[in-house]
Design a protein around this nucleic acid. Structure first.
Lengths: 298, 298
DNA sequence: AGAGGTTACGGGCAGCGTAAGGATC
DNA sequence: GATCCTTACGCTGCCCGTAACCTCT
């Protein structure tokens, strides 16, 4: 009975399909089958019933799972407690919403690389709905997105919220959300949908909204007077300092954007967990630092 | 990090000498060294400090040990809960005191073979002091001896006691412990020493005592009138039924013989534990069965 | 035809044992 | 010399991937 066999068993038990477990573990499907067979033969017990649709745990399999999970968690504990941080190897695939990418991501990556210099970081910046999908299909280990995700096996760590504010070109004299074109987030994003909802509530109709998945583009457009925008206050300071855009107050602001650091806790990876914790720490520091000098720029 | 590495690590940690761990695990000494090195290199931590006298755990090693022990115990749990008894393989080396060998051992072995038909049983019958030594040096897995053993890492399960009684030839008219030669156990055994002590206390001197490590020989000698004996009541019934020996009452009987099923709980083997439990059960049943019809034979 | 699992088979490498080497008493 | 660990090296056998096969929808 090897540890690899147990880990394989847990993946198969979780996914219910040998083929998929093989993909997940970067193994060929026969290799996974063989490991399960070896385990069953060594224990002298059938662990799964083979069905056309996949495999299902037997009651002996259920028993094994509970113990195997304990063993795996101790293994993780050993790795995380004993491996010096600077020796931690591996790869972590992180998905990031653009707002985060534009704010504290670089601070976070700097800190992460300092702690785990040998850890390979694979970034992908995308909108929350895509990040969610990638995370759930295990193509990401960790995502900073507009959460929380309510799936059962997702761990969500709250991150500092982003306040939205209204922006327009400095040349604009009478910006009005009920008439001006509004730059907002991607059509599938929550802020976009919240915005539409608010506009309908307040003005009876939503005027023209330009969804964009590039925040800097949106700010550029606003600066050039094409429209106004309901965008993260924190990301506007460069344009404001350059006196290209300004804020205005139509009497209300859209809801805050709530972010979380989310990850599957399947086979709970201690590194992923630690990384999420670090993100929360860096983001909070960043928010505090912004808050102080922000008074004079906003 | 493989399970074999962890198990090896635990043995080395326990014994403090790589060479000894290698012997214990039936591996070459370099193989054990290599496993430890592999583990240290994977964790990026030194687990032992090498010294002339052997190896000593570092503080990281101590940390690992606690987790590794948990993992090992779960592994044992898996094996014992999931392997159907009739599939249990392996070898168990059992040491038996002669009194046990002559009483319930055969019942016990029958029951054990029925439960674990594929388990290889290696028996050795010897006196308690030798069994103790063999057990502590790990040449036995389990011993039924006059316990308990007070070493820290020994588990003792109490077994039914054996009452001693006085026996003499049926032709003997005036048997007397203070004058007749007495057949007893081996000179190094507790009953022998207790007997000497009692004789000194009661008669001021101990007459001739014939120590013997063969109970059946002792009974034969008694039957032939060479002397009397203070021997286990339970083992005499054949000679009594044949009307070759009889009991007599000099007004006192030697102390009971206390037995235990004892085993090291180093890396606690679940099979050894279960076997000890079985022995206790069979021995108790046997004692009860003897007690009932014994009334008419004794 | 596609999605699931099993069987067959050749090759790579992890890990073992043997043997020699070094350090310390 | 005895004891204990390390290094060197060749070999074995496990286990993986490829490929072909089976079964069901």
């Amino acid at each position: 009975m090897t540890f690899d066999q147990l880990k394989t068993f847990l993946w198969v038990a979780k996914l219910g399909i040998i083929r998929r477990a093989a993909d997940e573990m970067n193994l060929s499907q026969p290799a996974v089958s063989a490991r399960i067979y070896a385990l069953e033969s060594e224990l002298g017990v059938q662990l799964f019933t083979r069905q056309k649709t996949g495999v299902v745990l037997t009651k002996e399999g259920l028993l094994l799972r509970s113990h195997a999970e304990k063993i795996e968690s101790y293994m993780e504990l050993i790795k995380s407690e004993l491996t010096p941080d600077e020796e931690v190897k591996g790869i972590i695939r992180i998905g990031v919403a653009e707002t985060v990418a534009q704010s504290w991501l670089s601070d976070f990556l700097t800190a992460l690389r300092k702690i785990y210099p040998k850890l390979v970081i694979e970034l992908s910046v995308d909108i929350t709905i895509n990040l969610r999908e990638q995370l759930l299909s295990r193509n990401l280990d960790l995502a900073f997105l507009m959460g929380p995700l309510t799936e059962g096996n997702v761990e969500n760590i709250p991150l500092p919220k982003f306040k939205l504010n209204w922006f327009c070109s400095v040349n604009e004299t009478s910006p009005d959300p009920s008439t001006s074109p509004i730059f907002s987030f991607s059509r599938l994003s929550r802020p976009y949908q919240d915005l539409v909802f608010e506009l309908m509530q307040r003005y009876g109709s939503a005027g023209q909204i330009f969804p964009s998945n590039s925040l800097s583009t949106s700010f550029e457009m606003i600066a050039s007077g094409i429209g106004i925008g309901a965008l993260p206050a924190q990301l506007a300071h460069r344009f404001i300092n350059d006196k290209r855009i300004k804020t205005f107050d139509p009497g209300w602001i859209p809801k805050d954007m709530l972010f979380t650091a989310s990850y599957l806790n399947d086979p709970r990876s201690e590194i992923t967990h630690q990384t999420a914790i670090l993100a929360e720490k860096i983001a909070t520091q960043n928010a505090a630092m912004i808050a102080a000098p922000a008074n004079k720029t906003l």
